[in-house]
Amino acid sequence: MDNSVLLVSPSPHVRAKHTTRSIMLDVIIALCPALVASVIIFGWRAALVTAFCVALCVFFEWAFEKICKRDVTVGDLSAIVTGLLLSFNLPVGIPLWQAAIGCLVAIVIVKQLFGGIGCNFANPAITARIVMLISFAGSMSDFAAKNDATSSATPLSGGEMPSVLDLFLGNHGGSLGETCALALLLGGIYLIVRRVITWYTPVVFVATVFVFTFLLGENPVEHVLTGGLLLGAIFMATDYSTTPSTKWGKVIFGLGCGIITVLIRVFGNYPEGVSFAILFMNILTPLISMWTRKKAFGGVIKK
């Protein structure tokens, strides 16, 4: 037999089924309930904004990699996830040119300039949202629910607080994907069941906000169900590249996010603090990962 057909490669010779692409696909599936909810709550423009952001994120990733003569990685679907998450952080009435700038910031500046997937230190969607919030303060805080055509503020910024049931179903003002707690929880459960994420960060994050606001005499249920808390805790604070990969690191990350969120919401000038909290903890991530690294089994520290 001809030996030249025999392949020599390093072990192991079997691999697990999942790939970066299948993980990203799971995240996309998990975001679908929230997408459907956003269209029901905010109307068809929600779908338009989402489709626009997704298309632009994919385009920017493709174009940047083409220009830089890198391998094109749009096939890993991560740009679609970024596009979805960014659009979920925008109000329904956002002018599309502003959304386009957000996509550019997310994909080109935050992700690709730092080396592409896995190399960015900050969450692209979160950072882009913050850039937009500071640059386009007016249109970024012009929240409108479908049932009242006039502009209304997110309940956190002093608008009238809807009933808990409305909060849970998302029937109130806010960013596209953040209002429907039910849809976000469904997505979160799916990700945990599929082992894409673990419960540590989301549960610690939400629990910290709950306990901390309760201690400060606020209504903890309203704090958990409003603003971007669930969207941030389930989908953004669990991003692989920008959060710690160890179990205790995830716990510390969730705790830090929770404390900062409440500090900003209760004592700060901004009505919403989830994005800033996550971005701040993103920056601490390399340190947290280093502190919480497991001790090697049987390892002896030499003096």
Binding site: T19, T20, G116, G118, S241, K247, G298
Partner: peptide, 27 residues
Amino acid sequence: DATPPKETACIKCGKCMERCPLKLSPC
């Protein structure tokens, strides 16, 4: 069964550390 899959960039998922029996950090 023999063709090795294509290597792509590390996404820092931490699965290698989670599954290492000796608790090392391969990434």
